[in-house]
Design a protein around this nucleic acid. Structure first.
Lengths: 145, 145
DNA sequence: CTCATTGCAAAGGATTTGCACTAAT
DNA sequence: ATTAGTGCAAATCCTTTGCAATGAG
């Protein structure tokens, strides 16, 4: 849990960056969440925890978190970015519910290999890939709450 | 060539929408291009053809083109959208060169089936998917021009 | 004490919208 | 004549940046 938070604090110290209350609070929200949060989501959660921070600070801290490798940025084509803890998981894809916005992860080795092969065939040096499957999740399919 | 343009004109008439010079010019640019254009690209091309149109009109016309099914909207996570002719091609994926921005298409049946299967496994009713492979294209890899 | 961070407000880029004006039917 | 489209500017949404005040080391 808080091991990731500790890692972030260490990262900050190692890079001579001030360890501020805001940074820790923001990191705690992002690293402690299972979801794929937007910057606004993070700010909202901070507010509800009574440790509000400016949106600009949220963005700036997320940038540090991303550079530290503890957080990964995602763009599902929704018009805004989402951020996710970089777990041990090497790489995974996403299912996005177009009704509730919920994001589900999955992993697929074969897909991994396929993209490498495809890039080669097109003489591309592959840097990465992104697969999003859009649809309606189980809950939303069953109808309104 | 102009068969797609004709189809758009027919679409407009069938829906009692005025067939304006701007709409035809914009449709001509998008439907006649092999690339994946941004709204700004379209406006630039119109200007160079001497038939400039306001950006707002470009966006509004692209919306009609999208609704007509003749054009497909794409979001490669670049911070803006691109538009592509909806060719006969049922579905295809994209390779995006992170240096020059060039987009290459490819098709892969197996991928298609895989995503359907994966959606099922997660109790999602699949609506579609999107795969983008990021990398450096052959030309850009060989170094600057 | 010194320098980086914070917060707010202003700036930015892409896209949308309000509205007076113009054009299509 | 009607009705919808156009252009421009203003407005929006997400994200970034400038700058004075604040806090970490």
């Amino acid at each position: 849990m808080s091991s990731a938070l500790d890692a972030f604090a260490s990262y900050l110290r190692d890079h001579n960056l001030p360890v501020t209350a805001q940074r820790l609070a923001i990191a705690d929200v992002v690293l402690g969440s299972e979801s794929h949060l937007s910057a606004a989501d993070v700010a909202r959660e901070l507010r509800s925890r009574g440790s509000a921070a400016g949106l600009a600070t949220v963005y700036r801290t997320i940038e540090v978190l991303t550079r530290s490798g503890l957080v990964v940025e995602r763009d599902f084509g929704e018009g805004f970015k989402r951020y996710e803890t970089a777990r041990d998981t090497p790489h995974h894809e996403h299912l996005l519910c177009s009704v509730c916005g919920r994001v589900t992860e999955f992993r697929n080795e074969r897909l991994e290999r396929m993209t490498t092969l495809i890039a080669e065939q097109h003489h591309f040096s592959r840097q990465g890939h992104r697969l999003v499957i859009y649809g309606t999740c189980d809950q939303c399919r069953r109808g309104p709450i």
